[in-house]
């Protein structure tokens, strides 16, 4: 009896010890289940209801989605997402790759240059937007600088020109994010085995040709990561537009994220806002899942 008494206590302690990892991870998992999965489901439900200023759980089927796709402003936002996303991703990749290749030529002061290319990533998109709003200011900004250089007829009014406002967002966005892509490519270049290049040189291949047909293809995984991250940034883009153009003039530079904020929070159309949020989620899934799938399949085969 005396010997047996401590035994159960000890095994209780042991089982507590064994359960400890689960107890530690539990709250985070619960948070994830509620605030990520649960909230996505909640938003989905809201998108099928009549909710306007306050959530209202009277179901109306696909009404909000129909309304969404009949809304001209939503179409402008979608078109802008294509224009902005395409140009933003392309220019970041191009600038990032070229900078990385140039920086990889045994450059003195490489560290300094790298730090300069990357510092915009430390800034808030609001700060970036504020700075570029001033630089692109029609009247006092770049326009006047060029006029004073001797081109009095020069105009640069993208910020107030509904046809061009989304391109102004591209300029600021690419300025902020291209240095980051450079860092990704540079890391990729540093990981390439020198002997492949030496062998190609012995065979008499020119350097541009070696870059084009050997080095750049081996950077494929980096392209994949970069496109995934940039697409993600583009779809979520909100702050930059808010600071730079506020979605204007009119709603000419709206993106889905600013549309969702406008309808979900300032115009009291909760159901429509929820529907647009679900469409944003669908866009992310539509971009990321195929990219990941193709990359995983390549890995398995390779």
């Amino acid at each position: 009896m005396d010997d047996a008494a401590p035994m159960p206590r000890r095994s209780a302690l042991d089982s507590l010890e064994a359960a400890l990892p689960k107890i530690v991870l539990g709250p985070s998992l619960l948070v994830s289940l509620i605030f990520v999965y649960g909230f996505i489901a909640w938003t989905a439900i809201l998108s099928f209801t009549k909710s306007r200023m306050l959530p209202n759980y009277e179901f109306v089927g696909l009404y909000q989605y129909v309304t969404l796709f009949e809304n001209e402003r939503w179409w402008v936002a979608l078109k802008n997402l294509c224009v902005f996303g395409g140009l933003f991703i392309f220019s970041c990749l191009a600038v990032g790759l070229i900078l990385a290749i140039l920086l990889d030529q045994k450059i003195r002061a490489e560290g300094w240059l790298r730090s300069i290319y990357l510092y915009p990533m430390a800034l808030s998109f609001i700060v970036t937007g504020t700075a570029w709003k001033w630089i692109l200011n029609p009247g006092l900004g770049v326009e006047r600088v060029v006029q004073q250089l001797g081109f009095p007829g020069f105009t640069f009014d993208w910020l107030v020109n509904p046809q061009m406002s989304i391109y102004a967002v591209v300029i600021a966005g690419a300025w902020q994010s291209s240095g980051f892509v450079m860092a990704l490519f540079l890391a990729g270049l540093r990981g390439i085995d020198d002997s492949i290049i030496k062998a190609a040189q012995v065979d008499g291949a020119s350097m541009p040709r070696i870059y084009w047909s050997i080095i750049i293809p081996t950077l494929r995984p980096v392209f994949f990561s970069a496109v995934m991250i940039l697409a993600h940034i583009a779809i979520k883009s909100f702050d930059l537009v808010m600071a730079l153009t506020g979605g204007g003039p009119g709603f000419s530079s709206d993106l889905p994220a600013t549309f969702m904020y406008a309808f979900g929070f300032t115009r009291n159309q909760v159901g429509l806002g929820a529907a647009s949020a679900m469409m944003m989620l669908a866009t992310v899934v539509a971009v990321i899942v195929p990219l990941m799938y193709s990359e995983v399949r390549r890995h398995r085969r390779g």
């Binding site: 909640w42 909100f238 889905p256 909760v270 989620l281």
Partner: peptide, 9 residues
Amino acid sequence: IPFQVVLLP
């Protein structure tokens, strides 16, 4: 996830 999808809840 784009955080827009959790804002309203």
